[in-house]
Design a protein around this nucleic acid. Structure first.
Lengths: 339, 339
DNA sequence: TTGTAGGCGTTATCAG
DNA sequence: CTGATAACGCCTACAA
């Protein structure tokens, strides 16, 4: 447990001494509150800047003010959905005067718990978690600390506080039905290992139900391995047993679907004549492809914006909806055969 | 400037009172330092957990201990190079007992400065910046505060403290020479608007020099617009004037190159027969493509790992090399014509 | 093994 | 308009 030596820094005291005023005058000047003559204020502000004075957030937080800090935890940087969700969200917090910090958990609930413990120790204004499956201790601690909490990307009837997301099972179900309606009956599913990513499991369940309903086979599930999603998709496809070939392969994301499609073509299969390829999320990649991927869009930017607004409302004492479920939309694409 | 009301939280005092001991006994118990009987320790630890006690990092930091906090600033979540750089890096800090937080700057030096100001106010153990071009005030403040600083992804002879990266100009130069050697003479370059991303400018300069040396035309420069790199690449290609068509197009990244290649093919151009396509970074995407993109790998994971190790050494009082320049490597691919 | 005093840097409060 | 004082919650140092 290393411990770096703390460095000499100029404190508000130093500035006060150098300016020949009391420390409170410096404090007031720097914060721009009333009660200081314009002359001394500008003098002190200049002096502080010149002395490279940086106020201590720890002391400020300790003296009673809130840290105006929002923590965001998400599973991984390697999934294109999270940048989309975070993009608009962080800008909104910025403009509202909050600063937000991010951390990743690698889909590990214990890492998420550890992060939350560390982060709560800074007395933040709010906490944002990805998904609604968390360790029980995390729920307890969040509830106990009464810190406003936003769960994004997934929804539940029993959020810790408020949640904004999509119904992944319903999304998988609708997607599965659309594909089954085209006559496909032997699906495979390439995604995260069962139990790792709850959203992957839910979508799988939805797809499975759709094919069960039409008398198709249960989808073969193939686990991709972590890292770049194109590679995961391609490797996942390679792990499908082609001796009893599926007629359509669902992928966890469009990027994985693209990787899988490349692997399929390398294996001599034509898309969609020999095999159908289906993605999820409606990622921007598919807009540049000559053959757009059949997929289900998820309103990622919308989730980020709505989540941010609801959380801000919560912070301002207004009560936003506890549960906000946003719609997905089917995109026909052309990587499955036409009706 | 909103200000959330601070919430009732159980303090070390409360635990002490409830346990019938002094506050110091609680403090010692929780930190696991010597000087507490095993009996009381376990009793107190259990009690604290039960009371959902979370120590205040602010108070701890203020009382002299270091925050063990490392801040990482990078331009955007939408560029595949940064996740690669950050991946190994953050794990190393984790294992060394530091917690790291990330923020993005949108390639805006003022945002970077603002972030640094906010972050330095927490008295962090170290700061990590992307690139070596920063506002002068940032350099001054970092130097004044004496916080160990690591600059990654780019190198300079005059780092703020230490730096680990690649020479982007040299990379562009070598890449340009390889391509020029194949007989190409009319390059175009699709990347960030001039002046936005210093690394893009450096690579452009390198490519330009290579073609100047062989009597080729100066590369036409086309600016992509922010957001998803596939889309930026495709749109950038669309902005090239095809009445005086280039014979080869360089892109800032492989993902952009892929987007551009799709746009080229949509425009009826064959790759590489009609036009060459060249990327940069050796991103994982190209490993799944039937036609791998001609590119230059950048040692992104290596940069992250080496940077993290050097910074840790620095934090432990050892002096790592101030400047570490890692090599790039040319990948022939097959999106340019063969020798 | 346990407890007491003092201080970390800032702000709220009240006095001048 | 300005300054003195007492918190904020924790830890070091010393005392019992």
């Amino acid at each position: 447990m290393p411990r770096t030596r703390s460095v000499n820094r100029t404190s508000i005291q130093d500035v006060a001494a150098a300016g020949g005023v009391s420390l409170m005058t410096v404090s007031r000047s720097l914060r721009g509150v009333d009660g200081v003559s314009e002359a001394t204020r500008s003098r002190i502000v200049a002096l502080a800047a010149e002395m490279n004075y940086v106020p201590s957030s720890s002391a400020r937080a300790l003296s009673g003010l809130n840290a105006n800090l929002i923590g965001i935890s998400f599973p991984t940087l390697f999934n294109d959905v999270f940048p989309d969700i975070l993009e608009g969200m962080r800008r909104i917090f910025d403009e509202a005067g909050y600063s937000s910090v991010m951390d990743t958990t690698d889909y590990d609930r214990m890492r998420e718990l550890a992060w939350a413990d560390r982060f709560l120790s800074w007395r933040p204004a709010a906490v944002i978690l990805t998904g609604v499956d968390h360790d029980d201790r995390l729920r307890r601690r969040l509830t106990a600390s009464a810190v406003p909490t936003l769960e994004i990307w997934d929804v539940t009837q029993t959020p810790i506080d408020i949640c904004v997301g999509i119904d992944h099972r319903a999304g998988g179900l609708e997607l599965g039905r659309r594909i089954a309606a085209l006559g496909y009956r032997r699906p495979a599913y390439v995604g995260a290992p069962a139990g790792l990513d709850p959203r992957a499991d839910q979508r799988f369940d939805g797809v499975a139900e759709a094919f069960r309903d039409v008398g198709g086979t249960a989808p073969t599930r193939v686990a991709g391995v972590g890292g770049n999603s194109f590679v995961v998709g391609a490797e996942g496809f390679g792990r499908i047993d082609l001796r009893t070939p599926p007629d359509v392969v669902f992928f966890l994301t469009d990027n994985m679907a693209f990787g899988g499609m490349m692997a399929a073509q390398k294996a001599g299969l034509r898309v969609p004549e020999d095999i159908g390829i289906v993605g999820f999320n409606g990622l921007d990649l598919t807009t540049v492809l000559p053959r757009p991927i059949t997929t289900m869009t998820s309103p990622r930017r919308q989730i980020g914006l709505t989540g941010a607004r609801h959380l801000l409302a919560r912070l301002h004492g207004v009560s936003p909806p506890k549960i906000t479920r946003l719609p997905c939309e089917f995109v026909p694409g052309s990587t499955v055969r036409a009706q």
